[in-house]
Design a protein around this nucleic acid. Structure first.
Length: 271
DNA sequence: ATGGGCACCTGGCTGC
DNA sequence: TGCAGCCAGGTGCCCA
């Protein structure tokens, strides 16, 4: 479920609960996430003081005095704040217990999520050191997009989803951004003109920014940190709307596949 | 360097 | 009602 807006919503949702607290314990029930949770992490983390919560791409950071936890929600993960460590359910893989008595519970049916610990700056962690700019930062601009797309033959939608180009643009928002920029997702990246690159960068910022403002899109069973669902608070223009009329021009939305992922677009609005 | 495909996993839905 | 088949929001890695 989580794309960048959902991850940022989660970050904000846990921030005030965990900042300034001490970790009373880490309880791991299933280590088999995308990367196994290291044995002994419980001892490393217990007693650490939490300084704050950060995010880079879709990775969440819990900064501690002597290191940081690096968390990823994968495709089906969620992080919730509980008043106490009530009995866990099937996919509740670990709990971070706080000295306040509260519990930060990680749940992830598909186990594509992950938990790492680093003693250094998490931004320089092996998984993060070579990724592209944040989409909402000024560094990500039309000029940047135009420059890095020169000579690239991949479909624009895949290009947008490449974390070396820009981070945090997942499958839903890639389609939505292409629609907002009125550019066909299957075009080669190199075909972007300067004005189209400008439109596309602005579209990505607007789509992600709006989604964050309303607390994430949320399809199916995503829950934010307080457990609220937040269904469809963002209006989707093309995603999962194949065959239905375009909200702008009524032309039926088309579905295609790029890089084994569903792509949606309006054949009339997008050129 | 680039692009394409695969892998990791479970659950929900569809259609027979 | 049962079951096989297909699909799903991520992303690191391997190979040509």
């Amino acid at each position: 479920m989580p794309e960048l807006p959902e991850v940022e919503t989660t970050r904000r949702g846990i921030e005030t609960t965990v900042t300034g607290r001490r970790i009373a314990g880490l309880v791991v029930r299933d280590r088999r996430l995308r990367w196994p949770i290291p044995i002994g992490l419980e001892d490393e983390v217990a007693g650490q003081d939490i300084k704050g919560v950060g995010r880079r791409a879709k990775y969440l950071f819990i900064y501690c005095k002597r290191g940081a936890l690096i968390l990823h929600l994968g495709m089906s993960g969620s992080l919730r704040v509980l008043e106490s460590a009530v009995p866990p359910e099937k996919h509740d893989h670990f709990d971070l217990l706080l000295d306040s008595g509260r519990c930060l519970r990680f749940s992830d049916p598909r186990r594509f999520g992950s938990l790492h610990w680093t003693r250094g700056d998490p931004a320089t962690h092996r998984l993060l050191e070579r990724i592209g700019p944040e989409p909402l930062e000024p560094e990500f601009s039309g000029a940047y997009l135009h420059r890095v797309s020169r000579g690239r033959r991949v479909a624009l939608k895949n290009f947008l989803m490449n974390s070396h180009v820009v981070v945090g643009v997942g499958n839903i928002y890639a389609s939505e951004s292409m629609f907002r920029a009125r550019i066909r997702p299957g075009r080669r990246a190199a075909s972007l003109t300067t004005s189209e690159a400008q439109r596309l960068a602005r579209a990505v910022k607007a789509v992600l920014g709006n989604a964050i403002r309303v607390g994430g899109t949320t399809l199916r069973n995503y829950v934010s940190a307080d457990g609220s669902p937040g269904y469809f608070r963002q209006k989707l223009y093309v995603y999962e709307r194949a065959g239905r009329p375009c909200r702008v021009c009524r032309t039926p939305i088309r579905r295609t596949v790029h890089g084994q992922r569903s792509t949606y677009y309006c054949p009339s609005c997008q050129k």
